[in-house]
Design a protein around this nucleic acid. Structure first.
Lengths: 203, 203
DNA sequence: TATTTACGATACTCACAAGTTTCGAAAATT
DNA sequence: AATTTTCGAAACTTGTGAGTATCGTAAATA
């Protein structure tokens, strides 16, 4: 399978020194790690360059601004995520997905999403990227799984699936962002049970 | 009833020109309005002073920094909020509360909370103020109402009320912050029904 | 080998905003 | 009237960080 970089290597190769793909990857990794650790605003371009062992001029050679770097880094990250479980057992799928998701958010990556949602409130470009790259693809995938269960009658046909997804994910994001109570597996278990209970017998 | 200002007037009154309480109020109103309109970071002290028809030196005469001004402004605002309904009809109370809350958030004040949650991610002082002034008092109040219904058996005794509150409010905050779908009364109605459905028959 | 393009290092410009200082006038007390 | 404290206006300092420009060097092609 060909990636973007390979296509670039083959078709765009000109005369001069080729782009350092390892440096590109180090810059993206560095941006991601820094946003996780210190947030969007404090992840300066100087710090990203330093940590990557690269130069600021290299960053601006390939990206128009800081937001573009971080957004591309998010894109790389997102493509590695676990798919929504689809075993045929609705309850088990939802439970498993929430456990995966909470483990993900309470791990190193949680702060990345807090930082993105925060930055999105003052930067429309970041907001759109977050919705398009993270929220929408994952919702689309989850929706397909839920649609199957709805067709099979395991989920009430009256329930709007977009609303159902917010019922499941909203409480998780809320605890992550507000921090008023711990975001642990037990919480995920209860939310899954409560939401399923509401969704299966709805109307 | 005596407010803070009256106490100040009586006990602290010295020789010189007294503090201008109207200017104080104008500064707080101005800070609130600007954070709503342009967010926390873009609400500069210069802009707050200008809009209040006051001077920056007056701001720094009474508050140690910008965050303190905005936090005190939030405090003033919070004390004016509608209480959680407590009519004896659980379903009606939850529906009414979510309708009130969504109307509140989609009005002028919604952006204030987006800005606060965003600022909280990079400023622990703001984060704590938001939890202590906004989240915790409202949760405490709502919890008392739900406890009553739980004692009356209208709500499953197995449901953890902290989790129940996140189930109800999480989806609302999530749509407000992520903006992937509209936050309208219809959504509030469905979340209330789904959550109640889950909570009443839990376990 | 000559040319081209990317590289890292570094100095630089530019904009912006927090917080300080100064000052003359206003509003209170003694 | 003299003193004290606050006020608004405005100039100022200080820090920061995004984005640019320069330069000598490295890695590719023709």
């Amino acid at each position: 399978m060909l990636g973007k970089e390979d296509l670039y290597e083959i078709s765009q190769r000109g005369r001069g020194r080729p782009r350092d793909e390892l440096a590109r990857q180090r810059i993206l990794d560095s941006a991601l790690a820094l946003v996780e650790q210190v947030g969007f605003a404090s992840a300066t371009t100087d710090a990203i360059a330093d940590r990557a062992g690269a130069s600021k001029s290299t960053i601006y050679r390939w990206w128009p601004n800081k937001a573009a770097v971080v957004i591309e880094a998010l894109q790389d990250q997102v493509s590695q995520e676990q798919p929504f479980p689809n075993t045929g057992n609705l309850r088990q799928d939802i439970h498993q997905q929430l456990q995966n998701f909470i483990a993900f958010l309470t791990g190193r990556r949680g702060r990345l999403f807090m930082a993105f949602i925060a930055a999105a409130q003052s930067d429309p470009e970041v907001a759109e990227a977050f919705r398009e790259l993270w929220i929408k693809p994952r919702r689309r995938e989850a929706r397909h799984v839920l649609e199957r269960y709805q067709r099979e009658g395991l989920l009430s046909g009256n329930a709007d699936l977009g609303t159902a997804l917010d019922l499941i994910y909203g409480p998780i994001y809320f605890r992550l962002l507000a921090g008023h109570a711990p975001l642990n597996p037990e919480f995920g278990r209860m939310i899954a049970d409560l939401a399923l209970n509401g969704l299966m017998t709805f109307k």
